[in-house]
Amino acid sequence: MADPITPAISERICKHMNDDHAAAVLTYAQVYGKSPTAETAAMSAIDPLGMDLTAQVDGETVNLRIPFDRELTDSEDAHQTLIAMIKQARTLSST
Rank of each mutant, 00 (worst) to 15 (best):
A23K: 04
T91K: 06
T6Y: 05
Q56V: 03
D47E: 15
T6P: 00
H21D: 05
V31R: 08
E39A: 08
D77I: 13
E76G: 13
E39V: 09
M51I: 08
M17Y: 07
S93G: 14
S10D: 02
H16Y: 14
P7V: 12
D58T: 13
I66C: 10
D3S: 15
A22M: 03
R90M: 11
N63G: 15
D69I: 02
E39G: 12
N63R: 15
V31A: 05
H16V: 12
N63F: 15
A38G: 01
N63C: 11
T61C: 10
V62W: 02
A29V: 03
P7M: 12
G59Y: 00
N18L: 00
I83Q: 09
Q30L: 10
T91R: 15
D52I: 07
I13K: 05
Q88S: 11
F68N: 02
L64C: 05
A8Q: 15
P7N: 14
T40G: 01
R90N: 10
T27F: 13
A89N: 10
M43N: 11
D20R: 14
D20F: 13
L72C: 06
D52F: 02
V25N: 07
K15M: 10
D47S: 15
G33I: 11
G33S: 00
T54K: 12
S75A: 15
R70A: 12
G50M: 03
C14V: 03
D20N: 12
M43Y: 03
T6A: 00
T81Q: 09
Q56T: 10
V31N: 01
D58M: 15
V57D: 07
H79Y: 14
T61V: 15
G50K: 00
L26R: 01
Q80K: 15
S93V: 10
I5R: 02
Q80S: 07
Y28L: 04
A78P: 10
V62F: 04
S93N: 08
T91W: 04
T81W: 14
R70K: 13
D58R: 14
P4V: 02
D20Y: 11
T81F: 07
D3M: 14
G59Q: 00
V57I: 11
L82P: 00
A45V: 08
P7D: 09
D3E: 13
R70L: 06
T95I: 08
T91E: 09
Q88Y: 12
T37P: 09
E60I: 06
Y28P: 00
I13R: 07
T95M: 11
A55M: 06
V57A: 06
Q88E: 13
Q56D: 04
M51V: 09
L72P: 11
A42E: 13
D69T: 04
L72M: 03
S44E: 04
T6Q: 01
Q88N: 15
L92I: 02
A2C: 07
S94C: 07
